[in-house]
Simulated assay, not measured.
Amino acid sequence: MTTRDALQTQLEQGIAALGLHLPADAVPRLLDYQALLERWNAAYNLTAVRDPAEMVTRHLLDSLAILPYVQGRTLADLGTGPGLPGIVLAIAAPGREILLVDSNGKKVRFLREAIRALKLDGVRAVQSRVEDVEGQYDCVTARAFASLADMLGWGGHLLAPDGIWLAMKGKRPDDELAGIPAGFGLRGTHELAVPGLSAERHLLVLGHA
């Protein structure tokens, strides 16, 4: 098998294990994204993960694991880095308006190239600090971006009144729960089983109190 065939098998098995049904073109497009990230990463150091199979597990499948919890027509992905989970979600569930936010210029240049190359309609990237972004979104995602206190403190204004905030964490951050700012509350905690990943993953769902 070529490397791409092996990665495709790994990705398809992971998607099946997650119980997801994606559009017909999602797998090739996700692999196109992974290949683009791998190419850029060689020059720009966008992610510490360099092995393609690890990228499938730690980036693609890790991002896809939250797809069942994503809702609404608009989504902001804060501290998106090279587009995680935002670009993965845009490919897996097209049709949303998605804003990718990162303060790192190299990463935002990559995001804009990925949006162009992958023809991601309705997706845009801004180089900005989270606290300077405007607008309100039905869903806000943040992957290992900051403590709950900081992420809601900086970005809480972006959450629509009936929106949900999806905070992707490793270990369950019980020590951070007391720091959730006034006006926000924890709606639920979900342990995620990411295929091929032995490390703990948790998703915290937050909303306006």
Rank of each mutant, 00 (worst) to 15 (best):
L120W: 00
R116H: 14
L18G: 12
A42M: 12
D102L: 04
A182V: 13
T141G: 01
D138V: 02
A65F: 04
L118K: 02
T2D: 15
L166G: 02
D62H: 05
Q71E: 14
L111A: 03
W165F: 15
A76V: 15
A182Q: 15
R4Y: 10
R172F: 07
V205E: 15
R129P: 13
L197V: 11
E191L: 05
D132C: 04
L192W: 06
T9V: 14
R58S: 08
L61I: 04
D150S: 05
L75C: 12
G179C: 00
T47S: 15
R201D: 01
R187H: 11
N41Y: 12
H59Q: 03
L11A: 01
L18F: 12
D25G: 05
L60K: 05
D150C: 00
V88A: 05
V130A: 11
T3M: 13
A149I: 02
G155C: 09
A43R: 13
R73A: 15
G196P: 11
I87N: 03
H190R: 13
D162V: 00
M151Q: 14
P195D: 04
D102I: 08
L84T: 05
E131M: 05
S128F: 05
D5S: 13
L120D: 01
G163K: 14
D175H: 15
L31A: 01
Q71S: 15
H202I: 02
G185F: 07
Y69M: 08
A209L: 11
E200K: 07
A16L: 13
A90S: 13
P181A: 05
T189Q: 13
R172E: 14
L100M: 13
D51A: 12
H157K: 13
G95Q: 01
A76R: 02
C139W: 00
G79R: 09
Q136Y: 03
E176A: 03
R116D: 14
A6G: 11
A17V: 07
L36G: 03
A48K: 08
